[in-house]
Design a protein around this nucleic acid. Structure first.
Length: 184
DNA sequence: GTTCCGATGCTT
DNA sequence: AGCATCGGAACG
């Protein structure tokens, strides 16, 4: 499978997030189709980890695009993002759900949610923080074989603290796909 | 169907 | 103290 290029990630996350739908996330011999994403922008975005500027946790969001931003939350979940933005900005796309393709069983629920998919795929902050998806390593994104369905949009999940930014339609999913996470 | 809660540890 | 979550319990 062919890795997506650096150029693919060099665009605003609100464009990158829907473009990733239907692509294949690969970690070793495990594969899932991306069916749900969220765009997180630069420091103006009050829901983004970039909103406090560059810190030890989020520094890769300000660095090379096409690199993994993996963070640990709620004491038990790793979340997988890929860095993307255009020009002198910052940002990343959170992958929220995968359709199982290979190596993770065929239970629809196993990768339906951002905390669950990292467990299913074996993605960990300790192993993959800052990993370059373009040049090498076990973790990457490849073009999908099938065409994705229609793209639906809605507010991002779990960011109600972010005021008007919480209401922007920066969540994207493949309409009707059974692996899309249920909103809370 | 809904709402609430605890788990568990890093970040600000 | 709060968190880009989740599964289960309680309730209606």
């Amino acid at each position: 499978m062919k890795r997506l290029s650096r150029r693919f990630y060099s665009r605003p996350t609100e464009e990158l997030a829907p473009a990733l739908l239907g692509k294949l996330l690969v970690c070793g011999d495990r594969v899932g189709r991306i069916v749900e994403t969220e765009a997180y922008l630069g420091p103006a975005d009050q829901a983004s980890h970039t909103r406090f500027g560059k810190t030890a946790r989020n520094e890769v969001m300000f660095g090379t695009v096409g690199v993994a931003y993996v963070y640990f939350i709620y004491g038990m979940y790793d979340m997988f993002n890929v860095v993307g933005y255009r020009g002198r900005e910052a940002g990343a796309v959170l992958v929220r759900a995968l359709e199982p393709i290979a190596g993770i069983g065929d239970d629809v629920k196993v990768a339906s949610g951002p905390g669950k998919l990292t467990r299913a795929m074996g993605i960990r902050r300790s192993a993959h923080y800052g990993a370059d998806l373009v040049t090498g390593g076990d973790l990457y994104i490849a073009g999908g074989a099938r065409r994705a369905g229609a793209v639906a949009t809605g507010p991002r999940i779990g960011v109600d603290y972010a005021g008007a930014w919480a209401r922007r339609r920066l969540r994207f999913w493949i309409e009707g796909n059974r692996s899309v996470s249920r909103a809370r």
